[in-house]
């Protein structure tokens, strides 16, 4: 076999393996997409051709499921979490990156260590505190919980991006008459923008998909979309068609975000990694 044939074969095998991997990953999503357009009775039939229906989508917004309210909760909680987390994390990350702080390493490791604590371990203290503070079943409570989840991650991620900005560039702005705050606003933020956007999207996804805390700390007013999925039960069992329609509603914003920020996302990821 010639070298060229060997390379072609190797490429072929590579493409085949990638296609298999993609297929395995996509199967559940394809199943959900199909189920969302099926009637309840068709759901368990593995037919590729069926009579599609759109009635599942309006149904999930109607009583008793009222997905609209949960969609609003999820959106507000995830958005406010990101809007608070990114500025605070950026300031913390800038300090860690640019100043020599006492106990810097200890602080950074402690922040990282909070990520290793299993959520179930700290859920009870959260429940007791929130009960005493009157934050149970509130969006504010969920935002606080989500902040505690995403902040360590955001600080570490943004620090990586800021570390990648050459110090010379900041100093050049300083000798050209910029104060530290002006340097942050005029130089660091524009240069770290792809990184901040990436960190923001990650935080949004984490907050959007958060399940455990929302399950324990909410029961009516502040229920979010992932918890809302558990409502699709009836006497005849799980309502997979409605559940799938709701699943798509949860996933669509993620797909749209991924499409919009794809370019920045890659730039942001490599910026943090390659220094």
């Amino acid at each position: 076999m010639t070298g060229r044939r060997k390379r072609q074969l190797a490429n072929g095998v590579q493409v085949l393996l990638i296609l298999i991997a993609i297929f395995v990953m996509l199967v559940p999503i394809i199943w959900i997409f199909m189920a969302a357009f099926k009637n309840h009775i068709d759901v368990f039939q593995l037919k590729l051709f069926f009579k599609p229906t759109l009635k599942n989508f309006p149904a999930v917004f109607e009583s008793p499921y009222s997905l609209g309210h949960k969609l609003m909760n999820s959106t507000l909680v995830a958005l406010v979490t990101v809007l608070l987390a990114i500025p605070i994390a950026t300031m913390a990350a800038y300090s860690f990156s640019r100043f020599r702080l006492t106990g810097e390493t200890t602080m950074l490791v402690t922040i990282l260590a909070t990520q290793f604590v299993p959520a179930v371990v700290i859920i009870l203290p959260f429940f007791v505190m929130f009960r005493d503070l009157g934050l149970l079943d509130t969006r504010v409570g969920l935002i606080l919980v989500n902040l505690s989840i995403v902040m360590p991650f955001a600080i570490w991620m943004i620090k990586g991006f800021i570390d990648g900005i050459p110090l010379d560039t900041e100093e050049a702005a300083m000798v050209d008459g910029s104060s530290r705050l002006q340097v942050i606003r005029n130089i660091v933020l524009p240069m770290a923008a792809p990184g901040l956007l990436t960190a923001g999207i990650f935080c949004f996804i984490i907050a959007w998909n958060e399940f455990l805390f929302a399950l324990i700390l909410t029961n009516k007013n502040a229920v979010t979309l992932p918890i809302g999925l558990a409502l699709f039960k009836a006497e005849e069992g799980d309502l997979w068609n409605l559940l799938s329609a709701a699943g798509i509603i949860i996933m669509v914003p993620m797909f749209v975000l991924a499409l919009i920020i794809r370019r920045y996302f890659v730039q942001g990821m490599t910026m943090g990694a390659v220094r």
């Binding site: 050459p166 010379d168 560039t169 100093e171 050049a172 702005a173 000798v175 050209d176 130089i187 240069m191």
Partner: peptide
């Protein structure tokens, strides 16, 4: 003002 080895222009 200063001129840097890396030039440190704002990209």
């Amino acid at each position: 003002p200063m001129v840097w080895q890396s030039l440190a222009l704002f990209p």
